[in-house]
Write a protein that binds this DNA or RNA. Structure first.
Lengths: 159, 159
DNA sequence: CGGGATACAATGGGATACCATGGGAAAGTC
DNA sequence: GACTTTCCCATGGTATCCCATTGTATCCCG
């Protein structure tokens, strides 16, 4: 259960996008009819995706981390207190998959991506990302250098 | 079963508001004819909403955690003792949904929101909120910064 | 092991159903 | 009887369903 690979998918004029078979297969077997899209909390113009179960699990961990064990009652009542799980939830949408594996991309996400005719789907282990193809290109180049530097920096055999 | 997304809905001249399909679907399947609206206990001008079951469950937790096991008996008898659940309940109203998914917004909530022609519905996981669109805008910007700070604060890779 | 035959993945498009909204008519209500 | 509330119908837009097409794996068979 891990999202891998990067795949360029068409965004047709009806706003539909195919969730590739490789990604569909990573959704829980008992819940393949829908998944969650949500805005990246740190990178504007990036959209994340996950299974409903995966997204909910993340929110749960988030609340435990941010609020401690007794936080659930407080967060349910105190609208003034900042709730990171609530923040993510507001920027998220459950989208249902058509039988053929496609979904209609909500307009807000199309806008965020500034996608015109294609979307780059990128597997990031326990979630996946939707990128504007051009922006992904740039991001990828930057990450390649960081990765090389990171590996060189690993304290290891030679040195 | 979690409220997500933010949706701007019209408030028509008859005082009607549509509960979007995405939110209706989160109401319990056996009780979709009505739900609960209640004033936020911490933010004036904010209205919260939940299913009847969800609201009741919150009151129950509130009494159990805030007052202890004997609390409910005490508040049933002692009118002098402060009962947070009773307070919330007084500021709450059950509103019924029309067959087409709309409801008439009680005047007290319209006033509280100072809503004129639109209401922003925001999913907050186990409940949702009704905001004055302009105020939500401001709130959202503030939350974005808090979220960024929160993510930075997570003990992680770089440091 | 070549050559189809078959299954499935990715895409396009027409027809239909549903969502969000406005407005009129009927039924209460004071 | 004026006003509010509920019911019903209308409409534009979007999403969903269904069917079709093409290309590519996979399979089977001799």
């Amino acid at each position: 259960m891990a999202f891998r690979s990067e795949i360029l998918i068409k965004l047709d004029k009806k706003g539909r996008v195919l969730l590739p078979a490789a990604f569909r297969d990573e959704l829980p077997a008992d819940d393949r009819g829908a998944f969650v899209l949500y805005h990246s909390p740190t990178i504007p113009g990036l959209v994340n995706g996950n299974s409903r179960a995966g997204f909910d699990a993340m929110l749960e961990r988030l609340r435990a981390e941010a609020l401690g064990p007794k936080g659930s009652l407080k967060v349910a009542l105190d609208d003034e207190a900042f709730d990171p799980a609530g923040y993510l939830s507001a920027g998220a949408r459950t989208v249902s998959l058509e039988p053929d594996g496609r979904f209609t991309m909500p307009a807000e996400f199309v806008q965020a991506l500034e996608a015109t005719d294609g979307v780059m789907l990128v597997g990031k282990v326990e979630k996946f990302q939707l990128w504007n193809p051009a922006r992904w290109q740039a991001r990828r180049d930057a990450e390649r250098e960081k990765m090389a530097a990171f590996v060189r920096g690993l304290s290891g055999g030679d040195a």
